[in-house]
């Protein structure tokens, strides 16, 4: 059994009138020491999927309406809130997209790491503080024994994200969920943070779910990839298989849109059109209005997930075909 098994996950947003499905039939597994990349455009449900795994949907109007999530042999959706909290920040941890605002501005960073440590481990304050200094040096913060008393506003975005990583790793999690950990950072810092995560993974054997909308980042860091489009997994395979043969026209669109030199290019423009909103009900394939391969079949019938090759699944009537 894999460390994390997500099966047929369904998530919906409840509005005054009805439930709008946001994530539909999403399944994937992650093993120890493995990195799964989830990639897709803005609004396709990547964050909601990761928050659902972590147990952070909480009081928002977003609900899990179906499917299961197994972690380390436990059925997470069957656990009590208390049992769930014992896992959060402990065996499963998460870092977020917004390093500038993800730390509490009124507490010193050391105290915020200590808080996480003491929540799950029976440590004295002094011992937790020593451990926090170690963690800060592990994530390569210079002068960790001094910086531990800094407030978040005294640090750069990259440093704050390192602090978040240190905090997430403080209890040796088996699974780290990183929701666009580098999107808000500039390119050189991005690379440093990703390298740091890869390095820590090879030392600690942590499984990682890395969410990104940059296929380039995914290609460099992940063992396998799930491409999401409007709440569904359009294509999933090992990174090598996926880049060897891009089956889904959406994946090809994403790849073509990786900007090479000029980071200011609005890369979304490479695929014409936009992701249909939650309110729009779709009969056929959600990508069909933007797809150059679309036919009448695509407009009336949603494609099922098919195993194109062992370990390479895709949701497309014309998987692997060109326009010709």
């Amino acid at each position: 059994m894999a460390l994390l098994e997500v099966e047929n996950l369904e998530i919906a947003v409840s509005t005054q009138r009805n439930l709008l499905p946001v994530v539909q039939g999403v399944s994937f597994t992650v093993d120890e020491n493995e990195t799964l990349g989830i990639v897709g455009e803005s609004g396709c449900g990547k964050s909601l999927t990761s928050l659902a795994i972590m147990g952070l949907l909480g009081t928002s109007p977003v609900r899990i309406t179906g499917g299961s999530i197994h972690f380390d042999g436990m059925n997470l959706l069957a656990l009590s809130e208390r049992e769930r909290r014992a896992i959060m920040g402990n065996r499963m941890a998460m870092i977020f997209q917004e390093p500038m605002t993800s730390l509490n501005p009124v507490y010193r960073i050391g105290d915020q790491i200590v808080e996480n440590l003491r929540q799950h481990q029976n440590l004295s304050h002094a011992a937790a503080r020593d451990r926090s200094v170690e963690l800060l040096s592990l994530v390569r913060i210079p002068d960790p024994s001094e910086r531990i008393d800094s407030f978040p506003h005294q640090m750069s975005g990259g440093q704050r994200q390192r602090v978040m990583i240190a905090m997430a790793l403080s209890c040796d999690p088996k699974l780290l969920i990183a929701d666009e950990p580098t999107t808000a950072l500039d390119v050189t810092v991005q690379k440093e943070v990703l390298d740091l995560m890869a390095d820590l993974q090879s030392r600690m054997g942590t499984a990682i779910v890395l969410i990104s909308h940059d296929l380039g980042v995914i290609a460099e860091t992940c063992d396998k990839v799930a491409v999401m489009y409007r709440g569904k997994i359009a294509e999933a395979a090992s990174t090598a298989d996926l880049f060897a043969e891009l089956l889904h026209p959406y994946t090809r669109g994403l790849l073509n849109s990786i900007p090479v030199v000029d980071r200011d290019v609005e890369w979304l423009e490479a695929i014409p059109g936009r992701v249909p909103t939650l309110e729009e009900t779709l009969t056929g394939c959600a990508f069909q209005p933007r797809c150059e391969l679309a036919t009448e079949l695509c407009a009336c019938e949603a494609p099922q997930t098919t195993q194109f090759k062992p370990g390479h699944s895709v949701q497309c009537h014309f998987a692997g075909q060109d326009r010709s």
Binding site: R85, M88, T101, M164
Partner: peptide, 12 residues
Amino acid sequence: EDHVRTARAKGL
């Protein structure tokens, strides 16, 4: 605010 989500993610 985002940092409250971080606090919840600690399992507090």
